[in-house]
């Protein structure tokens, strides 16, 4: 399905566009060209959405949407809209500055990756026969909320609320044992930090939580992992075995609204981080977060 849509998109491109959308599947190509910084500061590979014709863009969006569930499509649409909102106040932002590219040639027989990356939203959808993973998936937003034409947008609201509910579900004793010993000013395993997961997990073990508390952990994991359309990642994260060795932790403040407030879910495969940072363009705080998969980031094609 993805391979078919990828080739359909490629067929709408000119020869020179085809050569600029296609990269070889190497570790440096995969890890080196995405970031939470604007595209003016960190080079991205591929073609921008803004450079595509109507037909080409429609084909690109069909492909991107196919990698995402409907909640994933909403995440993408809303985050691109947030960047357009930023673009009204500062240059170097906007939905037109999101890049699409392929690592490896889309085919059903050999591995390839669809990379979609811009300022605050990146995913790498890896295919190897079937759709393996959509991680790394960076999700950040500024402004956190805004109103446009009478509609209020809060692109990361679901994630924020699910993570907050998870922390609020803990007793004060549990909260105390889930608190990390250091403060954070960004996500720990961000762009170009591949494989730098802590060697031992910190925080409180999910298996020690009540079933209703565990349900909140699952919902928090789902707020990220259920964006992927058919990778099976979410199901793998919430098996009893996986949850037994999954830890949740937080730093500085557990309210997810004070600057420096930080939360993490660290399992055998799943890795989710969320941090409240001060605003860059606007004065209000903004969020950075990342979902990684310790086994299948970049389709598991590389080891770190």
């Amino acid at each position: 399905m993805l391979t078919c849509l990828a080739n359909n998109f490629i067929s709408t491109l000119s020869t020179s566009q085809q050569s600029s959308v296609q990269y070889s599947l190497t570790s440096s190509n995969a890890t080196g060209y995405w970031s939470n910084l604007p595209t003016t500061l960190v080079t991205r590979h591929g073609l921008t959405l803004g450079s595509l014709s109507t037909t080409q863009k429609a084909a690109a969006m069909s492909l991107l949407n196919a990698a995402l569930t409907s909640s994933g499509q909403t995440t993408m649409t809303e985050l691109l809209a947030a960047d357009d909102q930023l673009a009204t106040s500062a240059s170097g932002y906007g939905s037109g500055l999101y890049y699409i590219s392929f690592l490896g040639t889309p085919s059903t027989s050999s591995p390839w990756i669809l990379e979609f990356t811009g300022h605050h939203y990146t995913f790498l959808a890896s295919v190897n026969g079937s759709y393996v993973s959509m991680t790394p998936n960076f999700v950040g937003v500024e402004p956190v909320t805004w109103t446009s034409n009478g509609t209020t947008h809060t692109p990361m609201g679901t994630r924020h609320d699910a993570l907050l509910a998870m922390l609020n579900g803990l007793s004060s004793t549990q909260l105390a044992s889930a608190k990390l010993s250091q403060a954070y000013d960004d996500v720990l395993v961000g762009p170009q930090k591949d494989g730098t997961f802590p060697s031992t997990a910190s925080g409180i073990q999910v298996s020690s939580l009540s079933s209703s508390q565990q349900a909140l952990v699952k919902a928090a994991i789902a707020s990220y992992a259920s964006d992927a359309n058919g990778t099976g990642q979410y199901d793998a994260y919430v098996t009893d075995t996986a949850l037994a060795s999954t830890y949740i932790s937080w730093a500085s403040y557990s309210d997810l609204s004070t600057k420096g407030s930080y939360v993490r879910i660290d399992g055998p495969r799943v890795w989710i981080e969320f941090i409240v940072q001060s605003g860059i363009v606007f004065s209000a705080n903004h969020y950075h977060s990342i979902w990684r998969d310790k086994s299948t980031d970049y389709g598991g094609n590389f080891t770190f």
């Binding site: 403060a183 500085s252 403040y253 609204s257």
Partner: peptide
């Protein structure tokens, strides 16, 4: 701002608390 956070984290200055 980072230095202040470090002081708070190290317990060298009082934590201003959530919503500071």
């Amino acid at each position: 701002d980072r230095l202040s956070v470090a002081f708070v984290q190290a317990g060298l200055l009082p934590d201003p608390g959530p919503g500071y």
